[in-house]
Computed example of a mutant assay.
Amino acid sequence: MIPNTAARVMLASTLAILSGCVSPHEEAVLRAAKSLEGEPRDRAVSAFGLPRRTTIENGFTVSYWPMSEVEQYVGVSNKRIVDKADGTAVLSETMGVKLKEHRHVCYVELTSDRRSIIVESKLIGNVAGCTSIVANLQRDDR
């Protein structure tokens, strides 16, 4: 077992390293999500629409909004064809590009109390999928 002091030093080092993994853009998304805490639940509904799923337990309402962003990029595409002609292998190779995409999926989870005030805001999944919440909240403020 690791002594308590050593465990704290390792945890602090790990957190310091991982904190550098969040881009400024993702920080803005996290701040936007946290800005909903203390706000009426109706603000989130007007910004994001009706939630996909809502559960009510012990007087708390938990609502979920799925979101996603698609990132498209051009990637190299290589194609190799090996033919056997007259017993010898003939290799032909083509190089090209292909349009590829990566889908970032994220869920906004908001917990509100009996008065419909948001008490907790979380982003589940890849934060890059929730980038639209910044624009949605700014649009809703106007």
Rank of each mutant, 00 (worst) to 15 (best):
P3V: 08
N4A: 04
A6D: 11
A7F: 12
A12E: 12
S13K: 15
T14K: 08
I17V: 15
S19Q: 08
G20R: 10
V22R: 03
S23G: 02
S23Y: 03
P24E: 04
P24I: 00
E26I: 00
L30R: 07
R31N: 11
R31Q: 09
R31H: 10
P40C: 03
P40S: 07
R41E: 10
V45C: 04
V45W: 03
G49H: 05
L50D: 03
L50V: 07
L50H: 07
R52K: 14
R52E: 13
R53E: 13
E57M: 06
G59I: 08
F60W: 03
T61C: 04
W65K: 14
P66M: 06
P66K: 12
S68G: 07
Y73P: 07
V74N: 07
G75I: 01
S77P: 00
S77V: 11
S77K: 12
K79F: 11
I81W: 10
D83C: 05
D86Y: 12
D86C: 09
G87T: 10
T88G: 02
V90D: 11
L91Q: 13
E93H: 11
G96C: 10
K98N: 06
H102P: 02
R103H: 12
C106K: 08
Y107F: 15
V108I: 14
V108K: 02
V108Y: 12
E109D: 07
L110K: 08
S112A: 15
S112L: 06
S112C: 09
S112H: 02
D113A: 07
R114S: 13
S116M: 04
L123D: 00
I124Q: 07
G125T: 14
G125S: 10
V127N: 02
A128F: 04
C130K: 02
T131I: 11
I133T: 02
V134F: 11
Q138L: 09
Q138F: 05
